[in-house]
Simulated assay, not measured.
Amino acid sequence: MSDSHDTSAGDIPEPVRITDLDLADLSASVRRLIDQSQEQARVLDNLTAEPPTIPLPGPDFSGFGTGPGPAPGGEPLFIMAMEGQAYEAELDALTDWVDDLLLPVYGREITSSAPWCPWWDQHPEAVARLHGLWLAWQQHIDPEAGPSGPSTWHRDHLDHTMAQLRAPSGPFAACTTNPSRPAHRLLHGPKPTTDPVPTPGHALAA
């Protein structure tokens, strides 16, 4: 007859005895596993979280995508067709764009051959040209303009506008030509005539 315990007969095996040293080792192993699991959970959380926004050097363009623009109901888009409060609101938005983005990025140095006027908003031609440039900016930075949108804006709008505004004979010709000596003066253009058109062979009287 075998001396081994027959568990099928209901015999209870003797309990496994763990020494205090083995229990301490087991507890330490469990704690390490828990710590590793928590660390893995933190890593997974960091990997699945949205990456933080890293500020890029240079001016912030985020606020210059759009401006007040046309109001619903067919209001005019071009600033020279506006008046009153609509004109003032559009000019304020344009000024923010010129002062905070255009001049810091594209202003270049003021010289006798490239004048500028700190009071450009009092020059109607400058307001008109800069507003047109701003409208084109809004169109060409739109995602629908495609990757070449900004390049097209530089080539077709920025370069021509700045060349006209800052030409020696442009609207700022009598304004600041030295950054240490700000100046402003409006140059009057030709006055509209109310005289009749001369017939061929006859000159207007002096």
Rank of each mutant, 00 (worst) to 15 (best):
P76E: 04
G107A: 15
L23H: 02
E14S: 15
G67E: 01
W134F: 07
S148E: 14
I110N: 13
D142P: 11
L21T: 09
D22G: 02
Q139A: 12
D121E: 01
Q164W: 02
P15L: 13
G63C: 06
L102S: 06
S113K: 02
A9S: 15
L204Y: 15
D22F: 00
Q36C: 06
T193Y: 14
T66L: 09
L204M: 13
P68G: 03
P190E: 14
L187H: 12
G146M: 09
T194C: 07
P182F: 00
W116N: 03
F78E: 10
P57L: 01
P68C: 00
P182E: 03
E125A: 10
P15G: 14
G132C: 10
R42N: 10
T177W: 00
F78H: 12
G149A: 13
W134S: 10
T194W: 15
T199Y: 14
A128K: 11
L23R: 06
A173N: 02
G107Y: 08
P168K: 04
L187R: 13
P13M: 14
R181W: 04
A173L: 03
V127D: 13
S4Q: 12
Y106E: 12
D96Y: 12
P196R: 14
A206E: 04
R185M: 13
L94D: 06
G146E: 07
D121H: 00
R17Y: 04
D60W: 10
R42W: 13
N46Y: 06
T194P: 10
T95H: 08
E90W: 06
W134Q: 05
P179N: 13
G58L: 05
G149I: 08
L21W: 04
L33W: 01
D6K: 11
R17T: 07
T176E: 04
D25T: 02
V105P: 13
G73D: 03
V127S: 08
I141P: 07
H123Q: 02
W153Q: 09
G67S: 08
V43W: 07
G58P: 09
G65C: 01
W116P: 00
L103W: 08
D142I: 11
R166N: 05
P118R: 05
W153N: 09
P51M: 11
L130D: 02
M80K: 04
D6H: 15
R185F: 11
P171H: 01
D121R: 02
A128G: 12
I54V: 14
D142A: 08
A163Y: 06
R108D: 08
P182T: 04
L204E: 12
R166P: 03
M162P: 03
P55N: 14
A24N: 03
T48G: 09
L91S: 02
A163M: 11
D92Q: 13
A167H: 14
W116C: 02
T177F: 02
